[in-house]
Simulated assay, not measured.
Amino acid sequence: MTTFPGTARVELISGLPVSVDIRTALPARELTPLLDDAFAWLRWVADTFDPGNVDSQIARLNEGRTIRQVPELIEVLHRCDELSAATDGWFEARIKGVIDPSGYIKGWALERLSRALSNAGAGDHRITAGHDVRVRGSAAPGERWRVGVRDPRRDVVRKVVFAHDLGIATSGGAPVLDPRTGVAQEGVGFVTVLGPDLGVADAYATALYAMGPALGRRFAAELAAKGPYESLIVGRDGQEFTTPGFAAHGGAESRLAG
């Protein structure tokens, strides 16, 4: 098999391993600064948006302290409000007076990074942070990227997704609050959403998890009927619900047992 040159790097961002794998044939003198800039961006996002960081702009905003004029902060909060409206409030970055965009920010950051890498000439890449993945271009000449969708509770692969350009977001590895009650939702095992924008897919996955199984399945079907976002919902009992377009991203071995 013909492989691409390129390079990969893994770093911890807020305690989470993040990997950037570039397969485009670029000289090392270009790849190294690209990766340096990529992880500098991710660290900046963590420093700015982590509500657990007492000096982040989100923490300062929650405590009524002075914040910097950061255009990205305004962009993220505005987009979270739009996604709240689109999900009838099931995705909500403001619960009980506290702003926490965690259900959107990781996907948004990886999506922005993916676009930046493409604009810099590194169009073949995979970025992975936890259970969120953004792929673009090819893994090898003419070959789609192969991404295992893992059950975050059992760490087993439930599906395999093949794609040249796709965001893959999974919710369920960390507690998701019901925005109406503030109580952690426990009715669903995990949710995976596929789509062209990883930030949006991340928010939809969070919302579907918060909705619970019955409402989540109905909303997922409506979402798929309207546009490019497809969903997999796995119940606590292991039963699966997938929207019709999800299977289009599968291959001959799209399902694994472990």
Rank of each mutant, 00 (worst) to 15 (best):
residue 94 R to I: 10
residue 97 G to E: 03
residue 99 I to Q: 08
residue 100 D to C: 08
residue 100 D to L: 10
residue 100 D to Q: 03
residue 101 P to A: 06
residue 101 P to S: 07
residue 102 S to R: 08
residue 102 S to D: 10
residue 102 S to N: 14
residue 103 G to I: 01
residue 107 G to F: 02
residue 109 A to R: 12
residue 111 E to V: 08
residue 116 A to V: 11
residue 118 S to V: 13
residue 120 A to C: 05
residue 120 A to L: 11
residue 122 A to G: 08
residue 123 G to K: 11
residue 125 H to W: 09
residue 125 H to C: 06
residue 126 R to T: 02
residue 126 R to M: 07
residue 126 R to K: 14
residue 126 R to Q: 14
residue 127 I to N: 05
residue 127 I to A: 07
residue 130 G to S: 06
residue 130 G to I: 02
residue 130 G to E: 02
residue 131 H to W: 14
residue 132 D to P: 14
residue 133 V to K: 08
residue 133 V to M: 08
residue 138 S to G: 10
residue 138 S to P: 07
residue 140 A to Y: 13
residue 140 A to K: 06
residue 141 P to S: 08
residue 143 E to M: 12
residue 143 E to I: 07
residue 144 R to E: 03
residue 145 W to P: 00
residue 146 R to M: 05
residue 146 R to W: 03
residue 146 R to E: 14
residue 147 V to G: 01
residue 148 G to V: 04
residue 150 R to H: 14
residue 151 D to S: 05
residue 151 D to E: 10
residue 154 R to W: 12
residue 154 R to S: 15
residue 155 D to E: 15
residue 156 V to A: 05
residue 157 V to C: 04
residue 158 R to F: 02
residue 159 K to V: 04
residue 160 V to N: 01
residue 160 V to A: 01
residue 161 V to C: 00
residue 163 A to N: 01
residue 165 D to M: 06
residue 167 G to H: 01
residue 168 I to N: 01
residue 168 I to E: 01
residue 169 A to H: 10
residue 170 T to I: 05
residue 172 G to F: 07
residue 172 G to K: 09
residue 172 G to Y: 08
residue 172 G to A: 09
residue 173 G to P: 00
residue 175 P to R: 13
residue 175 P to K: 14
residue 180 R to H: 14
residue 182 G to A: 06
residue 182 G to R: 01
residue 183 V to Q: 13
residue 186 E to G: 12
residue 188 V to I: 11
residue 189 G to L: 11
residue 190 F to H: 10
residue 191 V to Y: 00
residue 194 L to R: 00
residue 196 P to V: 03
residue 197 D to F: 07
residue 198 L to Q: 03
residue 199 G to D: 03
residue 199 G to W: 07
residue 200 V to K: 12
residue 201 A to D: 11
residue 203 A to M: 06
residue 203 A to W: 07
residue 206 T to E: 11
residue 207 A to E: 03
residue 207 A to N: 04
residue 208 L to Y: 08
residue 210 A to T: 00
residue 214 A to D: 13
residue 217 R to E: 14
residue 218 R to N: 10
residue 221 A to E: 15
residue 224 A to M: 09
residue 224 A to S: 15
residue 226 K to E: 14
residue 227 G to I: 01
residue 229 Y to N: 02
residue 230 E to C: 03
residue 230 E to F: 06
residue 233 I to S: 03
residue 233 I to A: 01
residue 235 G to S: 15
